[in-house]
Simulated assay, not measured.
Amino acid sequence: MERLIELFVATILNHNIALVYILGMCPLIAISTSVKNAKSMGIAVVIVVTLTGIINYPIYLLLKQTETTSLALLVFIITIAATVQILELLMEKFVPKMYNAFGIFLPLITVNCVVLAVSLFFVTREYTFSETAVFSFGSSLGWMLAIVLIAGLREKMAKHADVPRGLKGKGIVFVLLGILALAFIGLTGLASI
């Protein structure tokens, strides 16, 4: 249990998938224009990453048993796309309000490299099922934390900061990401993966 808690803390803080491993930058930069958008995308990523990590684990075990692990990447991509599609259909049918709130964010997750990276990480690190579930959930929460932090900083800077013309827009986002990455990397040693 202690190992799972340490893994969970590490995935959110000092092994943050966005700020330490620099994954999922395209949607993070593009969608962090407002905290509302960031939260919506973050929630969608948490759901999809956690589900696909949990689904891909037994699939990988089956591939390992049949000695076809070379197909893992392809199978993981198909699983991710199918999970997003099924989730989208279920939400449209049973929770249309939430489905409408997510809008374009849900289909965009299919191409977010964080989703695939989490599945590849649990394979290379040889996690157990419980470690995979915790890693998937924690990593997606870490990504959500990063996008909400960036969105909050962008909103505050738009109101209160005089950003130089050459850094306005995405330029300042890269500066903010660099500063946040340094801060999160500074937590190294807090917990290990």
Rank of each mutant, 00 (worst) to 15 (best):
M1G: 04
M1F: 10
M1H: 13
E2H: 15
R3E: 13
R3L: 02
I5S: 08
E6P: 00
L7I: 09
I12V: 12
I12P: 02
N14G: 01
N14P: 00
N14M: 03
H15K: 14
N16T: 02
L19F: 11
V20Y: 08
V20C: 02
Y21S: 07
I22Y: 08
G24Y: 02
M25I: 13
M25N: 11
M25D: 07
C26T: 14
P27W: 06
L28Y: 05
I29N: 04
T33K: 13
S34N: 10
S34W: 05
V35S: 03
K36C: 00
N37G: 00
N37Y: 06
A38K: 10
A38L: 08
A38S: 11
K39W: 12
M41H: 12
G42K: 04
A44I: 03
A44T: 07
V45C: 12
V46I: 15
G53V: 03
I55W: 07
I55P: 01
N56I: 08
N56A: 14
Y57K: 13
Y57R: 13
Y57D: 07
P58E: 10
L61I: 13
L61C: 07
L63D: 06
K64F: 05
K64E: 05
K64R: 15
Q65M: 14
Q65C: 05
E67I: 04
T68I: 06
S70V: 09
L71E: 07
L73P: 00
L73W: 12
L74G: 15
V75E: 02
V75S: 04
I77Y: 12
I78D: 03
T79M: 11
A82K: 06
V84R: 08
Q85T: 10
I86E: 05
M91R: 04
M91G: 03
E92L: 03
E92V: 05
E92P: 01
F94P: 00
V95F: 12
V95K: 15
K97Y: 09
A101H: 10
A101V: 02
F102E: 02
L106E: 13
P107W: 09
L108W: 12
T110F: 06
L116M: 14
S119H: 08
L120S: 11
F121M: 14
F122P: 00
V123R: 13
T124K: 15
R125L: 09
E126G: 09
F129K: 14
F129C: 05
E131P: 00
S136K: 14
S136M: 03
S136V: 02
F137A: 08
G138C: 03
L141F: 10
L141G: 02
W143D: 06
A146S: 14
I147A: 01
I147P: 00
I147L: 03
G152E: 05
G152I: 03
K156A: 10
M157Y: 04
V163H: 09
P164I: 11
L167G: 07
G169E: 02
G171P: 01
V173K: 06
V173I: 10
F174A: 06
V175W: 11
L177C: 04
G178T: 03
I179V: 11
F184D: 03
I185M: 04
T188H: 12
T188W: 07
A191D: 07
S192E: 12
I193K: 11
